[in-house]
């Protein structure tokens, strides 16, 4: 049970005994955790740890070979995300969920303007007033610290950091309750990283979003996440409050991880 759980609050996401095998290889084994509204959970591990598989399963791009994930939806109530009808799952993906991909190009429409990118989810919800859409787009450009003069520019011409900010705006515009962040700062300059992380921290806390943050960077975990789970060879080897896990690691692998990084 998480120390973060607020009084009378129910878990937003319950991951239970998740496992995944393909081609004789067990990529994931017995992964379980809970996530509460407004909580940020870091999933930390190196490549091959299974964190990418976990992410694919959480975003329902992949169906696990064992275990299940329950999500408490505002629209559909408590559901098993892999048993839900495809139409509904796609609807949730446009509204209650967000997915900020590692490579911003994959999460944006590069051929349409920043404003269009931000407005898309709102239009999918039926917002049909151009003026309102534009106002929302402007407002969000501001929130993610993108210059409003560039609202009509194509993201193709944005820097890596700007694309990431746009991706964040595009996802958060519908106030999702659960957001997956996949290595949000990878490939960005160090100074850009710091500012982006700061932005994320503010937005997450202000909007009370639950976040699963997948990262190999312990510094990012420490800055953003209240809790951390450490993955190694497809299993969770350690979990707890981020500061505790990073300052006083119990498992040998975590100790190795922490000691080999200048944090």
């Amino acid at each position: 049970m998480s120390n973060f759980a607020r009084q009378d609050e129910q878990a937003l996401l319950i991951v239970n005994g998740l496992g995944h095998t393909y081609g004789g290889l067990q990529a994931l084994k017995a992964v379980s955790f809970e996530l509460f509204p407004g909580e940020v959970l870091a999933v930390v591990g190196e490549s091959g740890s299974g964190k990418s598989t976990l992410l694919k399963i959480l975003s329902s791009a992949l169906t696990p070979t064992s275990g299940e994930i329950h999500y408490r939806s505002e629209r559909f109530g408590k559901i098993n995300i892999h048993q839900l009808a495809e139409t509904r799952r796609r609807e949730l993906a446009r509204t209650e969920w967000g997915f900020v991909t590692q490579n911003a190009d994959d999460g944006l429409r590069l051929g349409v303007s920043a404003g269009a990118n931000i407005s898309e989810r709102l239009m999918a919800l039926g917002v049909n007033h151009f003026g309102h859409l534009r106002d929302q787009a402007n407002s969000w450009m501001e929130k993610v610290e993108l210059p409003s003069a560039r609202i009509d520019d194509l993201p193709r011409n944005f820097s890596g950091g700007m694309k990431q900010r746009l991706q964040i705006a595009r996802n958060l515009v519908t106030h999702p309750r659960l957001v997956l962040l996949d290595e949000p700062t990878s490939g960005l300059d160090v100074s850009v990283q710091a500012r982006l992380l700061d932005l994320l921290r503010q937005l997450v806390s202000r909007l009370d979003i639950a976040v699963v943050l997948v990262t190999h960077d312990l510094g990012v975990a420490r800055l953003l996440a209240q809790r951390t789970i450490v993955m190694h060879r497809g299993q969770v080897v350690e979990s707890g409050l981020t500061d505790q896990v990073l300052d006083d690691p119990q498992h040998a692998y975590t100790q190795l991880l922490v000691s080999s990084v200048l944090v």
Binding site: R90, A116, M123, A124
Partner: peptide, 15 residues
């Protein structure tokens, strides 16, 4: 899922 169409219409008005 008519997002492709709606962003196109948005772009037309913006441009």
């Amino acid at each position: 899922e008519y997002g492709l169409m709606s962003v196109k219409l948005y772009e037309d008005i913006a441009r």
